[in-house]
């Protein structure tokens, strides 16, 4: 049995079924990310003054990712346009670019996650805090047994409030140094993972969900670029519509990032 309206438009809706389907799906996605954005707003507005982190994320990396995703949105559109004008070679080229850019975005984001997960806040028994990236850990390091030591590249502060705003003049002027801390002097320590505070929790939740969308989109485009492109020989119109639908999803992923970047990195 042939599926109706995969190519021609339905008389009552004026569009083919897959297009209506993807728009309905994107509408539900807006509400999904909307819920998380509203959670972010609630957490941020509800935070005590001077306690919400500022300048914790790498703006340069975020900006590069914005450019990468915008460029990938453009190559997706060009891939669809190439299908429309029946230039399959150009479609292959543009969609290959999209896949590479999607992978680049994920790699950069992975690097950023790694940066957060190797960044430690170590509270010492004398009340001071050593904050920085983990450089080395002695083989016998055991926090429970109080043996060994670890080395961080960062700074020593008196109060955790000094770690909140990294764009403050004092934080920017702080001297970065190697700090070796014996386990016997550590009262507690933790990395900047999701459990660190509400900011990292919402940051990892939203960007993690967005990253999964990028991963899903990349795999889908990879399929359409590879084995899925066989349909071009038998039904090019339907294949072009598939490219359009996948492109709409990819543009939505770009749209979400357009708001995520300023909200998380710049404000």
């Amino acid at each position: 049995m042939e599926i109706p309206y995969t190519i021609e438009n339905r008389p009552d809706t004026g569009i083919y079924n897959a297009k209506l389907g993807i728009w309905l799906f994107l509408a539900s996605e807006v509400m999904l990310f909307g819920g998380l954005f509203s959670a972010y707003v609630l957490l941020r507005v509800g935070a005590e003054p001077g306690t919400w982190p500022h300048g914790w994320l790498d703006v340069k990396l975020g900006a590069i990712n914005t450019f990468v995703l915008a460029l990938s949105a453009i190559t997706t559109l060009l891939a669809w346009a190439a299908c429309k004008v029946r230039q399959f070679g150009k479609f292959k080229f543009f969609h290959a670019c999209t896949i590479l850019l999607g992978v680049t975005f994920l790699c950069l984001h992975g690097y950023e996650y790694h940066d957060e997960l190797t960044h430690y806040e170590v509270h010492l028994t004398n009340g001071k805090i050593a904050d920085g990236h983990l450089l080395d850990e002695s083989k016998d390091f055991d926090l429970a047994q109080k043996t060994g030591s670890l080395t961080l590249e960062g700074r020593m502060v008196e109060d955790s409030r000094e770690l909140v705003d990294l764009r403050a003049p004092a934080a920017e002027a702080a001297k970065i140094q190697e700090i070796t801390v014996p386990a016997s002097e550590i009262s507690q320590m933790g990395n900047y993972g999701p459990s660190h505070n509400t900011f990292t929790a919402i940051y990892f939740t939203i960007t993690g969900l967005h990253g999964l969308h990028v991963l899903g989109g990349t795999l889908m485009i990879l399929y359409l670029w590879g084995p899925g492109s066989r349909m071009w020989k038998t039904d090019p119109e339907r294949f072009t519509n598939r490219i359009e639908v996948s492109g709409l999803f990819w543009h939505f992923v770009d749209l979400v990032w357009i708001f995520l970047f300023p909200v998380l990195y710049l404000t």
Binding site: I15, A70, F252, D254, P262
Partner: peptide, 29 residues
């Protein structure tokens, strides 16, 4: 900052997603 982000979003939705020339049903959704 968010106003500028809205401009970016308009460009992506309007031109790359062809929302400026979409069918009425999509606008209703």
């Amino acid at each position: 900052i968010l106003s500028i982000a809205v401009i970016n979003a308009f460009l992506v939705a309007g031109y790359l997603m062809h929302l400026l020339t979409e069918k009425k049903l999509i606008y209703i959704v």
